[in-house]
């Protein structure tokens, strides 16, 4: 009976997330808690598989950015309900904390927004600082929230140096090793990432999320 209830509600939650229905996802998560089902299991068996499906659909452009954002919102809403239920019992370790920004001098945000939405959809705690963000502000935020990853976007060839400025400042502050720094955006290449000493580069948003996941795994020595 309990197994059937789990299957029903988890499937409903997955569907709500894939459909980007925030209200339904929240209500479904509340029902899971109310029925006394395992909230951690709901995250693992409903939210995470739904996130994977949404990511794959976006990569094939079967869905678009607005759908991705709505799904990420639905996931966030459901996750909030479920994690507070878990917190009542035991703390839940976050998948990873990412501070993301488009670097100073660059005002383009679509690529960065896609990565941020996909990261949220994959259960990361994301601090999106927006566009044209000075190096020091990015670092201060990373320090404040105890980030694992700093993700830097730049669209223009003339603004990509802003990514190097962040890495140089981290080195100057002797905290470079505290963070995984990844770069991306229209103007950037793997060659550029190597040149400036970034930990990784990805061409597309889905690749960026996989990269961040892999680098965290490597750094922690465990699967996030």
């Amino acid at each position: 009976m309990r197994k059937m209830l789990e299957e029903k509600y988890f499937a409903e939650l997955r569907e709500a997330i894939i459909a980007g229905d925030v209200q339904r996802a929240r209500e479904c998560a509340e029902k899971i808690v109310k029925e006394g089902l395992d909230p951690l299991k709901a995250i693992e068996e409903a939210i995470q598989p739904a996130a994977k499906i949404v990511g794959e659909k976006f990569e094939k452009l079967e869905i678009f950015l607005v759908d991705l954002i709505m799904s990420a919102d639905a996931m966030k809403a459901a996750a909030e309900v479920l994690t507070s239920a878990i917190k009542a019992k035991r703390p839940l370790k976050p998948v990873g904390k990412v501070v993301i920004a488009t670097v100073q001098g660059d005002i383009h945000d679509i690529g960065k927004n896609i990565v941020a939405a996909l990261l949220v959809a994959n259960g990361f705690e994301v601090y999106d600082l927006g566009v044209d963000v000075p190096a020091l502000k990015i670092i201060e935020k990373a320090e404040e929230v105890g980030a694992d990853v700093i993700a830097l976007s730049a669209l223009m060839t003339s603004t990509m140096r802003g990514q190097k400025d962040v890495i140089d400042m981290l080195k100057a502050m002797s905290i470079r090793d505290k963070y995984i720094v990844v770069v991306g955006g229209g103007a950037t290449t793997a060659e550029w990432a190597r040149e400036i000493g970034a930990d990784g580069w990805a061409e597309t948003a889905p690749e960026g999320v996989s990269l961040i996941r892999r680098l965290i795994e490597e750094k922690r020595g465990v699967k996030p």
Binding site: L61, F64, L65, I110
Partner: peptide, 12 residues
């Protein structure tokens, strides 16, 4: 405009 971005699909 970005196909797949806020604009959406081909028609959009």
């Amino acid at each position: 405009p970005v196909y797949g971005g806020y604009a959406g699909g081909a028609g959009e």
